[in-house]
């Protein structure tokens, strides 16, 4: 028996669809349907403290996305990225440059330098809860209650946690540089500094782009740090976009929260698509 002008055999078709059914079911139930639902919820405005809802179309989108709450959340998320992404790139390059060499016991150093990969967000937050605490901390600073320092304070666990990931990704990039190129530049009389800026960094620039995207994605999705260290305070000063979405899980704010979740999707999508563009370009230019 043939289907689709003989391209597919019925048995194969049934089997293929059967094999993809479990994953598809999960994706539909917990990714696509919920996504469609929040888009819809975003068009409903809550009335009388969430007792009933009025369909207002996409005007609520305009109100929320151009409003103060959303801008605040976006700004705090951006600050988080500002503290964590450049720090991750620089620390990754420095650690990887130091550890990319033949040396007795280099594996031990590499394990130590990559150790924070395994850290959960909540554990990293716990670590810095203890480190920077005005009462019982090792460093008695009150950054988390200081509106100017709080965003930096909640970024610290992520900066530490990212060290391991940044290190292994950059190291992988360095180890992929062909030895002949390094050798040739050495024969050409390039010193270490010139070699770093003229050869090494350009060679690993795609890897650094990749790392930047990963750091951005995980920064946008950072949550445990804020929830555990500040609960969004002081004065909502550390409420990132995701934290605002989390907080709006109430009848009153579910509509506006859904709009912010869609906003979060757009931000995430831009970053992820950026990654695909970078990967695509690499494939073509290699």
């Amino acid at each position: 028996m043939k289907l689709f002008r003989g391209r597919y055999r019925l048995r194969d078709s049934a089997l293929g669809l059967l094999f993809i059914a479990p994953s598809m079911a999960v994706f539909i139930l917990f990714a696509f349907v919920p996504f469609v639902r929040i888009i819809g919820w975003g068009t409903y405005e809550s009335r009388q403290g969430g007792q009933w809802y009025k369909s207002v179309g996409f005007s609520q989108y305009w109100d929320v996305l151009s409003g103060h709450e959303f801008r605040e959340g976006l700004w705090h998320s951006f600050q988080f990225l500002l503290y964590t992404v450049p720090a991750g790139l620089v620390s990754g390059v420095l650690l990887a440059l130091a550890a990319d060499r033949k040396l007795r016991g280099i594996k031990i150093y590499q394990t130590a330098l990559s150790s924070t990969i395994a850290t959960a967000g909540a554990v990293a937050a716990t670590v810095f809860f203890v480190l920077i605490n005005p009462v019982v901390g090792i460093f008695k600073v009150d950054w988390l209650n200081d509106s100017h320092m709080a965003m930096f304070g909640v970024s610290l666990p992520a900066i530490w946690q990212n060290l391991g990931l940044s290190f292994v990704i950059v190291l992988a990039g360095l180890q992929a540089i062909p030895e002949e190129i390094v050798e040739a530049s050495r024969l050409d009389g390039y010193g270490p500094v010139r070699r770093l800026f003229r050869i090494t960094l350009p060679m690993i620039s795609p890897v650094l782009m990749f790392l930047a995207v990963i750091l951005m994605t995980s920064g946008i999705q950072a949550f445990a740090e804020v929830d555990l260290l500040t609960q969004g305070g002081p004065n909502e000063g550390t409420e990132t976009l995701l934290y605002k979405v989390f907080k709006s899980n109430t009848p009153v704010s579910i509509g506006t929260g859904s709009v912010m979740a869609v906003g979060l999707f757009v931000v995430t999508a831009i970053v992820v698509l950026l990654q695909f563009v970078i990967l695509e370009r690499r494939v073509h230019y290699d």
């Binding site: 993809i20 598809m24 994706f27 999707f265």
Partner: peptide, 21 residues
């Protein structure tokens, strides 16, 4: 393609509706 597209829909985005489910 649809399966890979789920990378654009992490729990962070869909959490409000998933809680309701």
């Amino acid at each position: 393609a649809v399966s890979i597209a789920t990378l654009l829909l992490p729990m962070e985005v869909t959490v409000l509706a998933n809680v309701r489910t």
